[in-house]
Design a protein around this nucleic acid. Structure first.
Lengths: 253, 253
DNA sequence: GTCAGTTTGTGCGATATATGAACAAAAGTC
DNA sequence: GACTTTTGTTCATATATCGCACAAACTGAC
């Protein structure tokens, strides 16, 4: 790609949209300039453009995003086959085991939920397609990181120490890397309250017909109902059965 | 706004992203140029930029969106207070009545789900935050359209005839406008299998402290369980109770 | 009310981007 | 295999955007 094939205004506008995610719902021009590192004049032009297109509202002082922004994510979810393919399997799995089941993919150092069948909620945060969690301490994240070449996984995890979401969170990158090796060996990952106290989960990789890992599938359960040590006995067969069924149905992505 | 305050490249890039929603998951440069009306050279530059930023993948022939696109919608959902405020109420309501409950807002002629608590699925399509349905034949859409000035609602509904999703769908704009008048009078809307056979729903408006309608709340139920005529008796009190509780908590948006 | 400290709006030269035609390369047709 | 048709890429030039510097408007304190 030649550098004239890069359109800076688009990149900046997308940075502006993402800036709203990391902070307040209402941002002034200067706020956005600070958050994005853009010049104020540029931030202003991006915001006015978004407002003109209906992606943002402007009350003369603050900008807010409008629901039209969701068209962009919707474009992905409706255009990507993976969510549609896995949804019926998730529904069935979730109903059979009486727990929430989800499928996610990796985006940088985060996992992104692309489909979910939820039972009565146990987590404090509400997960939905598009939700993000740190890969290093989520069961699906461990499975997806384990599928990468070691140096790549290490780079994504970073130098550490990792953020401790609970007292159980593994914060030492080496500890996580060791865990990844085990996950790679056994073919599944179990998380015992590393992300949220009271929540255990187990995940398996979803591979396509050529054996490439394209996503992860998990079941989450309250620790009070199922001890972490019992997760594999209880849920692994069902997870692996679904993974096996899905395998011929998945291309990449 | 002066015309130099508009960034054309950003507008075009967003058009390109949305183009993926309306068609195939894999699009060539020419496909995108056709769908968006952009010049092939410009479409190519937008796509290469999206690929460079990690929002798209390029295999040398086709482009596909990556999960990173979901960051944009996530920016809206996490930055907007409405979804967070209503979610606990939805969970409680859904559990109490044993049916799915949702909150949506209007975007053009479509409603957009911003929060949802789902029980076992009855609809053929899987609704989630970001999902869109035509406002004219959805219970929440009727409520939201009824809250607009008549000419505005009429403009959104369009000249008709409307698409018939089922034999029950009201396809004559005048019929829908008459329905809106009734909804405005009674303060709620009931849909009897106009969107999908076997599915009834009832919706009420959610107003903020100043009385402005900012969203709609609904309950959907299988027609086999609850006849459309029985929806109001059965669910209206609970819906109105939630609307009343939410009223002082809502600002706009 | 005044004043410093911020934030926002605007004009301008330098620079980057859009455009459409022309060319090159595939893909489809017979 | 030679044809047409479609698609991808390049280039020169007209145009739009960038970011700086300055001016204006707003804030909050006293």
């Amino acid at each position: 790609m030649r550098d004239t094939d890069f359109i800076g205004g688009l990149a900046k506008g997308l940075r502006v949209i993402e800036a709203f995610g990391e902070a307040e719902p209402r941002l002034s021009i200067s706020d956005v300039a600070k958050l994005t590192g853009l010049d104020r004049a540029t931030a202003r032009r991006c915001l006015l453009t978004l407002a003109e297109l209906g992606y943002a509202d402007y009350d003369g002082k603050f900008f807010t995003l409008t629901p039209r922004i969701l068209r962009l994510g919707h474009a992905y979810l409706s255009a990507t086959p993976l969510p549609h393919i896995v949804q019926p399997f998730l529904d069935q799995l979730s109903e059979a085991v009486g727990q929430s089941a989800s499928v996610s993919v990796l985006d940088g150092a985060e996992i992104v939920y692309v489909a979910r069948a939820s039972q009565r909620r146990v987590m404090s945060i509400n997960l939905m397609p598009g939700s993000r969690l740190p890969a290093a301490c989520a069961s699906m994240g461990r499975v997806l990181l384990a599928a990468l070449p070691e140096p790549e996984a290490r780079a994504l995890i970073g130098p550490g120490p990792l953020r401790a979401y609970t007292p159980q969170t593994k914060t030492d990158p080496e500890e996580v890397m060791a865990e990844l090796a085990e996950v790679r060996g056994q073919g599944y990952a179990v998380i015992d309250q590393e992300l949220e106290l009271g929540l255990c989960s187990i995940a398996v990789p979803l591979a396509d017909a050529r054996g490439r890992v394209v996503a992860a599938l998990n079941i989450g359960a309250p620790a009070a109902q199922v001890a972490a040590a019992g997760m594999a006995d209880r849920y692994l067969p069902a997870l692996q059965a679904v993974a096996r069924q899905l395998r011929p149905l998945l291309r990449q992505g």
